[in-house]
């Protein structure tokens, strides 16, 4: 696994030194976890969760929202109740 690729996906700016250091660390972690590849999982159904709990839902009921001033508290810039940011270019 290429550290600079992973760093880019997470939008992390790494120095050359860090790339070298993390590359060996990441390889170590992956190798450790990779031991699981050796297990025989024939006949075992894949599962996303450890506990056999299904169908945790909520009813379609409306609850109060945040006051708009609270919702915008973390916005560095705002205008007309919108969160303002550098222009998104498509």
């Amino acid at each position: 696994m290429d550290v600079s690729y992973v760093a880019h996906l997470a939008r992390l700016a790494l120095s050359q030194d860090e790339i070298t250091r993390f590359q060996s660390q990441l390889s170590g972690v992956l190798e450790h976890v990779g031991q699981m590849q050796k297990l025989d999982v024939e006949g075992i159904e894949p599962t996303a969760h450890a506990s056999p709990v299904y169908n945790v839902f909520r009813e379609d009921v409306e609850l109060p929202s945040l006051p708009v001033e609270d919702a915008l508290k973390n916005a560095p810039q705002q205008a007309n109740n919108l969160i303002i940011m550098p222009k998104i270019v498509e």
Partner: peptide, 10 residues
């Protein structure tokens, strides 16, 4: 989208 900025409504 505005002239130099964009605005977000959640």
């Amino acid at each position: 989208h505005f002239e130099t900025t964009s605005g977000i409504d959640f």
